[in-house]
């Protein structure tokens, strides 16, 4: 960023949006800065540090279980978020706690992890399993809400206009009988993962799966929902056999990356196992909940 000249420290969202709109694409938002620290872009002339805006720091759970999360919440904050609804805790908060080490978790922000979207970004994987919606605000266009799936299909950098800023993430309320998990496989706690999987399973009153999400990250260029496999689970009774069957088919639904850490074939096999494990864990959570409700469980 050899042409970087100025820093701004707005205290409010409108102030930040105004700076972006006036900047004509040469003024960028900075959150934790871990991505921009690597930037060599000659096009950036000013940065807007949004970490001091109070209206971007909230983590709220509504009465019905909906969550609204401010864009500059750090991974550490999410990892330690005690009021998170159970499925959010088991997916998003767990994913946040697996990000790199404490010094990175202290600065990496929710919004930055979404907008920068690297193959190894963990929070979007969990957010896809939660049907999260991203709120984008602009001084020119007002507010629009985009499902995280829409934002990750191409790349957020292509979807966001230069005057737009991701200000908030909304997570819809989940049914009472819902289970979820996030699993990661890496050489060490802090290394880039070989693969990540997030899953969510909702059960209806008859104990049948009413909805399912299966998301694979890290092994592929961008996190992706395996909708064909989700459809295999929906309408079925949860069982270990079903988890194994769905897991065995993962390899035909993704085109994994290969590098010096792990070959594409290895990652495909790994994703199969991780999806099976994730579904088993979700089934265990929801069947346990259902059994307790019937008065059968502990």
């Amino acid at each position: 960023m050899k042409n970087l000249e100025r820093w701004y420290y707005p205290k409010s969202i409108p102030e930040a949006l105004e700076l972006l709109a006036e900047g004509g694409g040469k003024v960028k938002v900075i959150g934790g800065g871990t991505a921009l620290a690597e930037s060599r872009s000659p096009d950036i002339v000013a940065l807007v540090d949004i970490t001091r805006i109070d209206a971007l720091q909230h983590a709220t759970v509504e009465g019905d279980g909906r969550c609204t999360l401010g864009a500059v919440l750090t991974a550490h904050h999410l990892a330690e978020w005690l009021n998170a609804p159970p499925v959010v805790a088991r997916t998003l908060c767990k994913a946040a706690g697996t990000i790199s080490h404490r010094m990175h978790r202290n600065v990496i922000t929710l919004g930055g992890n979404i907008v920068q979207l690297y193959a190894w970004s963990d929070l979007p994987v969990a957010l896809l399993a939660l049907d999260a919606v991203c709120v984008l605000q602009s001084a020119k266009n007002g507010t629009r809400r985009l499902p995280i799936r829409k934002l990750t299909t191409v790349h957020p950098a292509k979807e966001l206009l230069f005057h737009e800023m991701l200000t908030q993430v909304e997570i819809p309320a989940l049914p009472a009988r819902s289970g979820g998990t996030f699993v990661k496989f890496a050489r060490t706690e802090t290394d880039y993962a070989f693969a990540t999987v997030a899953a969510r399973v909702d059960l209806d009153g008859d104990g049948v799966v009413s909805d399912c999400r299966i998301v694979v990250g890290c092994a592929v260029p961008r996190p992706v929902r395996l909708e064909a496999l989700e459809a295999m689970v929906t309408g079925q009774d949860p069982s270990p056999g079903l988890a194994a069957e769905v897991g065995s088919r993962v390899g035909t639904h993704i085109r994994p990356l290969g590098d010096f850490r792990a070959s594409a074939a290895y990652r495909a096999e790994l994703c199969s196992v991780l999806v099976k494990r994730a579904l088993l864990e979700c089934f265990d959570q929801v069947v346990g909940v259902a059994a307790i409700e019937r008065g059968e469980g502990a």
């Binding site: 820093w7 900075i30 990175h104």
Partner: peptide, 22 residues
């Protein structure tokens, strides 16, 4: 290069000087 900023550890090599303003 770990330093403490407002009670939290950060990497000084990955933090812009301007980020610690104030």
């Amino acid at each position: 290069c770990t330093v403490i900023v407002d009670g939290k550890t950060v990497l000084a090599c990955a933090t812009f000087a301007a980020q610690v303003e104030g």
